[in-house]
Design a protein around this nucleic acid. Sequence first.
DNA 1: TTGTAAGCGTTATCAG
DNA 2: CTGATAACGCTTACAA
Lengths: 341, 341
Amino acid sequence: MEAATLKDIARELNISVSTVSRALRDSYEINPETKRLVMECATRLNYRPNPIALSLKGSSSKALAVVVPQIANYYFSQAINGIEEVAQQRGYDVIIFQTHETYEREVAALRQALARRVDGLLISLSSETSTVAHLQEFQQHAPIVQFDRVSSQLATPRVVADNFAGAYAATEHLIKTGRRRIAHLTIQPWLSITQERLAGYRAALEQNCLAYDETLVRFGTFGPNEVGPLVDELLALQPPPDAFFTASDRLAVGCLAALRQRRLRIPADVSLIGFTNLTVADMLAPALSTVEQPATDIGREAVARLLDIIERKHRAAPPATVTMPTALHVRESTSLMDLTP
Amino acid sequence: MEAATLKDIARELNISVSTVSRALRDSYEINPETKRLVMECATRLNYRPNPIALSLKGSSSKALAVVVPQIANYYFSQAINGIEEVAQQRGYDVIIFQTHETYEREVAALRQALARRVDGLLISLSSETSTVAHLQEFQQHAPIVQFDRVSSQLATPRVVADNFAGAYAATEHLIKTGRRRIAHLTIQPWLSITQERLAGYRAALEQNCLAYDETLVRFGTFGPNEVGPLVDELLALQPPPDAFFTASDRLAVGCLAALRQRRLRIPADVSLIGFTNLTVADMLAPALSTVEQPATDIGREAVARLLDIIERKHRAAPPATVTMPTALHVRESTSLMDLTP
DNA sequence: TTGTAAGCGTTATCAG
DNA sequence: CTGATAACGCTTACAA
């Protein structure tokens, strides 16, 4: 049973293809009786409009491109989850591209998305990306919404977690519980999210009359075995830190492990709060306090913005930034992870 | 700068569209000089064939559909990771669909994939799916490869983790370390993966002269707060279990938490091994012993099979099952998760 | 060796 | 109200 086309319906009813087309889109200029007949026949033949023909025709491809550094990452997979959910609901398919954190693959992904004539693009920048010419080029063809890792050089709507507030809340919580030397382990310094979190951390310190000490802040892409030495370095400071605030899942896990190996107790000796999202936090629960990133909501919100632009044909979308709230989950009181004999 | 078409090149060079088309695909019947000219012009105008027009023409859409229950799940996001990697490498785009574990959405996804004229389908069945008519229907249009959650009712290649061997190894390890009453917490009984794991568990027991006791085996979709009571139930048995073997991340985490709440120590009081994958294991490391599922490799392998079928036009692919090895990671010796004061 | 024309499924324009 | 016809970008007989 091949897919039915307008032509099949037309042949069946001995009318023209254009009439069928119009009847199906409920054009006002079609005889109600004809409409009924066409509708009935369409249902009977299980007719589905061919989206490829529609795209060729030029109107819209009903497909969205999503470009992320990595799918196998809780944050991004949750974001894609939200994106796919809303997109499907509104009749759009989602085509996925990974950049693996390289500029080169980001460019390739955009080229591919362009070739596919997607109606819009959702992107979280690779950590290598520092120029946006490739995105500006893309923008001449279809609207873009940035999420999570965004660039202010690019005039598009942006949907991000409230990194500043999250970092502020975490830092302030640490201060309120008596911490004075709070280390901050974070990712690449040129990323928007890094800067915002750092700003929140710094603001909280300063609002609470604590000096910002740059020796307590470390940037990088730390591999699994690089966090330990780093924590050592920090603990060797005089005075040593009494708390850690980390900017990613991996950093939080590495830090947990390093602290444990050094026989430091949480929160007796040091406190630890990680910037992550609820699913990860639940897996580690409840040893780790977290600033929850609403990844799924960010995905949902981002795609909703994009679809609004696409459907209302607001090609010139306001480059507004939507900030999704983060939530501080403090879980230092008990540790279900105490599983040793 | 709109995307260049064959027509643009033809106009530029004052030749016909068909000549350009042939030159670009290096047809033997074209003057080498013309070819050179066309090639040069194509490069200059940055010509990319329009995949949409190609699909309409009927040959191939260079797109693959991936249908999974949930993207926001480590297993599936890693599998998609591998799929996207290989697909992109071989020039195919990946369109993602989630079923959210419902049959209805699975059917909708297939319909959508069909409408998109994808060249092939990679699917991991929803837990609600018990009939395969919708897949057989799809098969008449494009080849399918199943992975992870597969149905033997459907004649397609299958790529799965070696669930039997993994479960066998886990169970045997528990026995060798002195356990005699090994509980098995697992998912929906009708899923292929459930059955294979159960079979491995059972075989290991029987090979080691232990009776299979069905009161120690529990099936279900346990919510976060349902695992606790279940563990209680099991522990109330006479004699109680001295080990747990769980079939998913969530079950493992729930079980960890429940055991802890009951002040049971791992592995002093009970042992615990979960069926999961390395990334999750690393996050929980090293409180949890695991049977690692090679999710990324399964994705890579599955898509490679599919592309081979597509490109060699082996529409009648042998419904062979590829079994990817699992690995037992024992990590009971130390617990970095002991973070309490 | 190159050009012409038909066709893929749909919509839009323009006649009837 | 309905029907031809052209167009979207490309491939492929068939003609020249």
